[in-house]
Simulated assay, not measured.
Amino acid sequence: MAIQCSICGGTHVKCAAVVNPNTKEFIEFGYDALSDGQCEQCGNVLLTDPEEVKADIDKWWAEYMARNDSHPNYVLCEIVRTDNYDGYEQAYIRIGGPENVVGNMDIIAVCRDLDELKALTVPDFSRGFTLVECQGFEFRPVMENRTYRIEIDGECIPVTTEEVLEFYPKQHNLTQDDIEQYAAANTALIKSYRECERRLDVALVRRLLDEERLMKPGESDSFKMQLHFEWFVRIRKEKTMQYAPFRYTVEAFCLDNIQTFTRRYITLEAALLHCLNGFNEKANSPNRYKSIEQYLTQSKTL
């Protein structure tokens, strides 16, 4: 197969070459000639030789198999985007395995086998990209994208493996066991907390303080509040004197990442004030409000 435009697949292309000026004999392509080619239809583009790329794929595959005696499931390659050309870029393609899987890395495509991978070297504008270089094969663990149904407060919350991996930072390197033992439950809990519609505002602060005397040990009130991230907060009145003199506990859960916050307070006012000040505990960063009264007074003027 001839050298082609990586965008349209056309063969009306040009590139720099080393030529004997006397005999006009072609010697070799110039340095990075294919990376700086010209297509009659597409202009300045990267050119590609699909047959040569396919041969490189076979070579890298054979080398991997000889070293590992097992099949890889990812290939690192260079691609050219046909819908928005901007030179080449690195990308991963997954090979084989079930379709409904999730991993900890971004991929541009999934191929059933090596033949389907090689087919990506032939330019096809409708595909959106062309594979122009194979850089090597790898094996990385992948997991089936299962759906877990977690019961929270009498409601069944569905959460998928993909949702769990999106919520937990990649450096946690979650395994299937991690997801089944705790990560799915934690993700479902946050998913349920996002449904809370009550927010911490003047009306809620007044109501909580006015009805404090009615709050029984073990009871709690919950709300959301916006800091840099959105948080779900639960204020609970302790059941026993185990934590005396502390009578209230704040449990806060970030709704955008796995941060949590827990503190105990002697009074409900102190708990609410700490929330209103964004859980500030920095000595060199003054609180926005020095008291609940200041918060209520300033809110009247807004």
Rank of each mutant, 00 (worst) to 15 (best):
114 L>N: 06
111 C>S: 07
3 I>M: 12
46 L>K: 00
28 E>Q: 10
4 Q>S: 10
59 K>Q: 14
91 A>C: 11
105 M>P: 00
115 D>Q: 11
109 A>T: 07
110 V>S: 05
49 D>S: 12
52 E>D: 13
81 R>M: 12
111 C>M: 06
94 R>A: 11
28 E>V: 13
76 L>V: 09
45 V>N: 00
70 S>H: 05
117 L>K: 04
10 G>F: 04
68 N>D: 08
3 I>S: 05
88 Y>M: 11
42 C>M: 04
22 N>G: 12
43 G>R: 03
70 S>C: 11
128 G>S: 06
85 Y>G: 01
58 D>Q: 11
51 E>Q: 13
93 I>G: 03
94 R>I: 15
43 G>L: 10
115 D>F: 14
126 S>I: 15
124 D>F: 13
14 K>T: 14
15 C>V: 10
82 T>V: 09
126 S>N: 11
97 G>Y: 07
118 K>G: 10
12 H>T: 05
113 D>V: 15
46 L>Y: 09
53 V>W: 05
56 D>L: 12
67 R>E: 14
69 D>S: 12
88 Y>L: 08
102 V>S: 06
60 W>H: 13
57 I>A: 14
24 K>H: 14
119 A>L: 06
128 G>F: 04
11 T>E: 15
5 C>F: 04
54 K>V: 15
54 K>P: 07
85 Y>P: 09
78 E>I: 09
73 N>G: 09
10 G>D: 14
129 F>G: 08
60 W>K: 12
124 D>S: 09
74 Y>T: 12
24 K>R: 12
33 A>P: 01
95 I>E: 02
51 E>P: 08
21 P>V: 07
102 V>D: 05
42 C>E: 08
54 K>N: 09
80 V>R: 00
63 E>D: 13
75 V>N: 02
58 D>N: 10
33 A>W: 05
103 G>T: 06
80 V>A: 08
39 C>I: 07
103 G>A: 13
72 P>D: 08
52 E>A: 15
47 L>F: 04
84 N>T: 10
20 N>V: 12
21 P>T: 03
37 G>N: 02
105 M>C: 12
46 L>V: 10
108 I>E: 02
18 V>M: 01
65 M>N: 03
42 C>D: 09
119 A>F: 04
77 C>I: 14
110 V>E: 06
110 V>A: 10
122 V>F: 04
130 T>D: 01
76 L>I: 07
98 P>S: 11
32 D>R: 02
84 N>V: 12
71 H>A: 15
42 C>K: 01
29 F>P: 02
81 R>I: 01
127 R>S: 05
12 H>I: 02
83 D>P: 05
99 E>Y: 15
72 P>C: 11
123 P>N: 03
88 Y>R: 00
50 P>S: 06
87 G>L: 08
89 E>P: 02
33 A>I: 03
49 D>C: 13
118 K>M: 14
74 Y>P: 05
26 F>M: 05
70 S>F: 07
109 A>E: 08
112 R>K: 12
40 E>Y: 07
128 G>Y: 04
